[in-house]
Design a protein around this nucleic acid. Structure first.
Lengths: 340, 340
DNA sequence: CCTAACCATTTGATCGTTCAAATGACACCC
DNA sequence: GGGTGTCATTTGAACGATCAAATGGTTAGG
């Protein structure tokens, strides 16, 4: 294997040029704009590149082109952020390379000002753009990024600015709708819902999809329960909900944790999930998988791909799309709705 | 706020030099080696830096210094890798900045950890070093990295090479030992163990800690069950295990999923976790937290810090430490061992 | 035949920083 | 006064690539 010199000296574009008997620029063209180079020359340059094992230095490219090719992504330990973002991050990491870029996760030390991490990442142009997660009402990041002219895209709508369209989100209503349709197809009768307390935009969206689908299928709108994202609360809310339902009814839930609560309430009531009561969760998490609960799975791969597309378009200064990207989640059936 | 020009022109070291009436190099020194600069000059340069809002370009620094300051970390979707690595990754992201470096996660397209990703990351010197996770017997990465002279450190021992000491790992035996001691202190009598099938190095280590602690405390070595990392298997193995135990006995488990299996077997046997049977899991995962199961928590923050220290030492070409770093996990008590 | 147009390739400059060596200033000491 | 040091600062030269403009050679058009 042709290795760089013993001193760890890198093979530069210069070395290739000398070996192929052409100039630096021709080598550069052979790599970046092959159509500008005569086929014979191209062949010669390419074999020189292979022989010497040349790879362009990304530092040099960054300096000259004024682009680092990196995308910043903030990580933190609050709430369920970690579990939500981890699969997306993995998908992003896999797909970044084909897009010619890479990710740089960074964390805000607890107590530090919200924007501090973004500011330092951007200051040295360590990144060309940012991906936002966990956007919420009153989020200071979008207006700040906008004011600085920093390109960015977002997981989840940017609630304060309806004109911003560089976001990817999962169509919660379509997810619960699919859940209801699946339940109907499996022969469950009345379909209830266990959601979060009113006021959560995501939660209300998922509830709306369930209600609309119930009405459409004439299955009758079942009872609704509410609980925060916590197993104890879910169980407490699920007990009366399950009691109010009959055999072969079902419950669609706003999350897998809530679904697990229903699952447990079901077992405690002496019923078998799936056979006696259908249960559908939301997110396709490890939890749902472990307990064999049918769940509406987040399309992580598609989300990652779309996010990369959006942020790269922003980096290139392209026009924003006409509207945000609502991706449809896919139901992944398990025993909690398929046991006969 | 002093902004760069309207054309987005960056403030360079040159601009600062002109504003402060000194040369480029003096500015560079003022930033990187303040002791080389006369206090008065330093003050003048610093205020010029603040006035103009200068921040050194990381691309230019990388090119000149031949160091990117980035550390590569492979992510993939196999097994429980994601849940295990996510909290570490978050901790690493937070702590990287103070260390003057940043992470670059990358994914292998195929899914299996192969060398391709490492090769391309290294080829363009996008990263200076790597952090390995999920090392196993016959892992091709350590010998390859070693042969290429690429600096790296590892989460988990490098099994094939006992002379390699740049690793951080969690002391599983110390964790289960702490679990047993906690159980004894809480007044549980016989303490059983539910582990993975024999042959897993990590699993055997955790079992050894449990056994040693049992013998020391004269509590008598309780029964042992085995199951793969899966809730159904755990439950199946837990049922006979629980049946063989008496009231106020306890079970220490090699993982939280196994512990959840014991939890469920316990409930099905009409017993209340904590009051009738102590249960301790391992990893401090969301699962344990959700079900209020006492668990031996991975010291993620310490692991991340130590990993950064090791990999940076490797980058600087420092001598490897005399031995690897075994960190002690901390038991986090919950209802499954504290209900009176 | 002369000019324009085109093609493949080369040359010089530049990106923003840091390294290595040179400079000038001042104090010290025989 | 001339050598020897030390200190603060400056100068020139990289680092490795790409951009923009220039080069020489060939072909087509009037």
């Amino acid at each position: 294997m042709p290795e760089p010199g013993p001193h760890g000296a890198r093979v530069t574009i210069h070395d290739v040029a000398r070996a192929a008997g052409v100039s630096r620029q021709t080598v550069s063209n052979a790599v970046n704009n092959p159509e500008r180079v005569h086929p014979d020359t191209l062949e010669r340059v390419r074999s020189a590149i292979d022989d010497l094992g040349y790879h362009p230095s990304s530092s040099a490219q960054s300096l000259r082109s004024r682009r680092s090719g990196a995308i910043g992504l903030e990580l933190h330990t609050l709430g369920t952020h970690n579990a939500t973002i981890a699969p997306v991050l993995t998908a992003l990491s896999v797909r970044a390379a084909p897009h010619g870029c890479h990710l740089v996760p960074f964390g805000s030390a607890s107590g530090a000002p919200m924007l501090e991490g973004y500011r330092t990442m951007w200051a040295g142009r360590l990144v060309d753009a940012f991906l936002l997660a966990d956007t919420h009402h009153g989020d200071p990041r979008p207006p700040w990024l906008e004011a600085q002219g920093i390109p960015y895209a977002s997981f989840g709508r940017v609630w304060d600015d309806p004109t911003f369209t560089r976001w990817v989100d999962v169509d919660g209503a379509a997810g619960t709708r699919a859940a209801v349709e699946h339940c109907v197809a499996q022969g469950y009768r009345t379909i209830g819902f266990l959601g979060w307390p009113e006021g959560s935009v995501v939660g209300d969206d998922r509830l709306a999809g369930w209600r609309a689908a119930c009405e459409e299928h004439g299955a009758g709108v079942g009872p609704v329960g509410r609980a925060v994202q916590d197993l104890d609360a879910a169980l407490a809310a699920a007990v009366p909900l399950v009691a109010s339902l009959s055999r072969r009814d079902a419950v669609v839930c706003a999350s897998d944790v809530l679904a697990l609560g229903v699952h447990e309430a079901c077992v405690r009531a002496g019923l078998e999930p799936g056979r006696d009561l259908g249960i559908v969760g939301f997110d396709g998490s490890e939890t749902a998988d472990m307990h064999h609960i049918t769940s509406v799975a987040q399309p992580y791969e598609a989300v990652a791909e779309e996010a990369l597309r959006l942020v790269r378009a922003a980096m290139r200064g392209e026009d924003a799309p006409a509207s945000g990207s609502l991706l449809t989640p896919v139901l992944s059936p398990d025993r909690s709705t398929t046991t006969p």
